[in-house]
Design a protein around this nucleic acid. Structure first.
Lengths: 200, 200
DNA sequence: TGATTATGTAAGCAGGCGCTTACAATCGCT
DNA sequence: AGCGATTGTAAGCGCCTGCTTACATAATCA
């Protein structure tokens, strides 16, 4: 058979192949979710033999867990906690002109019935998000109202990015945020101030 | 459920077996979502041979569509547009829905990530729900606003029932309903007093 | 009645899945 | 160099999936 051209990646480099698998898995899980991503997809996308996936990660579930771990840590450590809500919101609402990379956040939305993904959404991302949102309201059920806002963001992300339902899927981000902010300011309105503050 | 042979189902009654399959499918889709429910599960739960599922419904996907259609019609029938959000919310927030009728949103929520189910979902949502919700607003982007309302319902269902995030998970339904209805009426308000800006 | 049709059943097919195995190639070390 | 350990590969196993087929039984009606 014909000779292959010289390969760029070293052939015996476990760290590199591990990283390649992790990266491919992150992208595919974000794009298709856990169930719709096969280990053969991941291996092919990483240009790695699929048996190595099991050698290095044990199982598809454990690979998913490691992806979640990596991506959520990356999301949380990349910026101070105050910026996290804005970042996630931007990822959720950003116009979908970036076909190369889905936001890692959508991997969790697509796979939220997996308990590990649910935990990240509920505790790590939801926690810091609600903390910030609750500051905007001083009513005794501020946390509950904040949860409702969080739920709205998740729902919009799901219908827009996962379900891809029109017209929401292709609506401009600023039209969405305008509508949502108007409703949210009613939801979170402070009793000591009649004028809701503008942010950013 | 097969009890004592008290009134066993007639053995040659296609309407009864069709109904049994629909009912079993409705419960299982709501419980596990589209792709986690197998046709063997449905047939066993209905105590019907699984080949009949394909005789009467053609495919798993068409069965899913009929389930959503039936449950949605049951949920929406005879309600004026003004009552729609309240009625959908009431069923969605109650921990146990009306006996005999599952809330279609639960099945929808758990089936987002499967592309075959998503196609059915987009059709059903666009046809049965958005059209009628959009009647509540007379602005030119009424459909978009209706999508945002639907997205909120899904998000709340997800955070409350699947993620089980506190305090939303255990909050009383009427408190949630009150908050959401207030915000929704702002979102969908008629005769929008603001200047009708078009963005190109 | 007996033929025709409607309904129910058992078995299996083709394909995809996660995962394993047996082995070859390459590296690190003395 | 020699040799064990590490890394890469091809093949395939067993199971589950949606769906189909060949056939048995029961209802219908001339």
């Amino acid at each position: 058979m014909g000779e292959e051209p010289e390969v760029p990646r070293r052939r015996h480099d476990s760290a590199a192949t591990r990283a390649a698998l992790l990266q491919a898995a992150s992208e595919l899980f974000a794009e298709r979710g856990f169930d719709q991503t096969t280990v053969r997809d991941v291996a092919a996308h990483a240009e790695v033999n699929q048996a190595l996936l099991f050698r290095y990660f044990g199982s598809k579930q454990e690979l998913f867990a490691e992806v979640l771990n990596r991506d959520s840590r990356q999301l949380l450590e990349g910026a101070p906690a105050e910026e996290l809500p804005g970042r996630i919101l931007k990822g959720l609402l950003s116009d979908r002109g970036d076909p190369g990379g889905e936001h890692p956040f959508t991997a969790m939305l697509r796979s939220f019935s997996d308990e590990r993904a649910a935990r990240v959404l509920r505790e790590e991302l939801g926690g810091s998000y609600v903390e910030r949102l609750a500051e905007l309201s001083d009513s005794d059920d501020a946390m509950l109202r904040a949860d409702l806002v969080l739920a709205w963001f998740f729902g919009v992300g799901m219908v827009r990015s996962v379900l891809r339902k029109q017209p929401l899927a292709d609506a401009p981000a600023d039209a969405l945020s305008e509508h949502m902010m108007r409703a949210i300011s009613v939801l979170l309105e402070r009793s000591d101030s009649s004028t809701p503050e503008e942010d950013s």
